[in-house]
Design a protein around this nucleic acid. Structure first.
Ligand code: ZN
Ligand code: ZN
Ligand code: ZN
Ligand code: ZN
Lengths: 130, 130
DNA sequence: TTACATAATGTTATAATATAACAATAACTA
DNA sequence: TAGTTATTGTTATATTATAACATTATGTAA
């Protein structure tokens, strides 16, 4: 799947909501907010989310079960993602560090195994909360 | 909390199960397997899991909602964790690479922010599945 | 254009994961 | 031994996610 792909109706509605949000959104928060647009069932939300993640338009923050729009054109369609998460205000930022992604993409374990994909979540306090 | 702490009854039962398992265990799998030992409710399992995670005796694999015992004495009581996950057989291994943990512990983002904690999950195919 | 394949949608029901609230007991500490 | 904190027990409920099936829309190739 390609990052510039045209979105279907439900995908577009849900992407727009996530994209304009300043914080990660949970599936049922999304559901609540798109019901006026005709999306009534959890499955409609989860299906759109799955596709958007596949396309790399959004990412899932695993530790929070929430979704944010990708703001890192170089994140390799969701194959290599890194985030910082504030443990007080829950602000999440996608990290786009070339050196970090290089380091992790090239990382080999003891057995010489290389990985096709990774997800990294950093935790700490954001500027505002320190 | 300390890694050598004495465990309570329920904590010990649940830790033993996870520790002897060759794969990550999910909370309700654990529940099913400890019912004969008198642990009957999900909350009893989740409470023990929470404490064991706090102590660093086990880790949660966020992308799988499952738990494995820590086999890395240097993983800093769950403050700095890295795993490899096979996308076919779901085998999970805790990575204990000094250079990786050094790199990530010292990683600073654009704003110079350092993080107190991280979790990294690599995905790929294990030896057997390649 | 028609037939076929694939992707997306709609809908109901249900599975899987996790926490709230309250009461009781055990273990630790001054 | 009283006070405190950690742990346990129990019921109910909240939250997150998928199964199964039917329908409609879109893309593709004769
Ligand atoms: Zn991204
Ligand atoms: Zn913050
Ligand atoms: Zn560990
Ligand atoms: Zn494997």
């Amino acid at each position: 799947m390609d990052k510039q792909q045209i979105l279907s109706k439900n995908q577009q509605i849900i992407f727009d909501l996530i994209d304009k949000s300043s914080e990660p959104l949970k599936a049922y928060t999304i559901l609540f907010n798109v019901q006026k647009k005709g999306i009534k069932a959890p499955l409609q939300v989860y299906r759109a989310l799955d596709k958007l993640v596949e396309m790399g338009k959004i990412h899932k923050i695993e530790s929070r079960n929430a979704f944010i729009a990708c703001h890192n054109s170089s994140c390799q369609v969701s194959k290599a993602t890194a985030f910082s998460i504030c443990e007080i205000c829950e602000k999440v930022t996608e990290i786009s560090s070339v050196s970090l992604s290089k380091y992790l993409t090239n990382f080999k374990d003891k057995d010489g195994m290389k990985y096709s994909k990774y997800n990294l979540e950093f935790f700490g306090l954001c500027k505002k909360c320190r």
